[in-house]
């Protein structure tokens, strides 16, 4: 949420998982899923990870992979709390960072702040990065 808000605040469009999930769970169809993943996403996930990868990662990559393809720049926040998610989330996260590095788009790597000073540095780095990319407020 913090990153998505900061990106929007400084005139860029964040590619968040929320909008993808929203599209999936509110679009009526035969495969209207009980949750948010259908066979289509699992198959699409194979474009990004091997077939041996656990289905949790494949499903996540089926949703997140196309977002990486659309991305023109990326901000990676490291050192997330344990509440970030399960092991599937963590592994999919590693795969995403790998994809971002291979894509060679402008990427900023920061950490979650723990003190006021760290927060000032974090926000300053994000703002400078976003302004460097251009945009409506940049």
């Amino acid at each position: 949420m913090i990153l998505s808000d900061l990106v929007e605040r400084f005139g860029h469009h964040p590619l968040g998982i929320g909008q993808e999930i929203g599209r999936m769970v509110t679009t009526p169809g035969l495969d209207n899923p009980p949750l948010n993943i259908t066979e289509k996403e699992l198959t699409r996930g194979l474009r990004y990870v091997a077939v041996e990868a656990p289905s949790g990662i494949r499903g996540r990559m089926g949703v997140l992979g196309p977002l990486v393809e659309q991305a023109e720049a990326a901000i990676v926040v490291k050192n997330a709390d344990y509440a970030f998610g399960c092991s599937g989330c963590a592994r999919a996260n590693i795969q995403l960072i790998y994809m971002l590095r291979r894509k060679k788009i402008p990427t900023l790597e920061i950490e979650y702040p723990k003190t006021r000073e760290e927060a000032k540095v974090m926000v300053k780095r994000v703002v400078d990065f976003l302004r460097g990319l251009g945009g409506t407020n940049g």
């Binding site: 949420m1 913090i2 900061l6 509440a83 006021r116 927060a119 000032k120 540095v121 926000v123 300053k124």
Partner: peptide, 26 residues
Amino acid sequence: HFLEYEFSVLPLIREGLESVERGEEV
């Protein structure tokens, strides 16, 4: 849980945004 974690970090982010607005050197 993650939202709850980020909720607790928001005061720090406010500090950061205010410092950017003031043009503070960090």
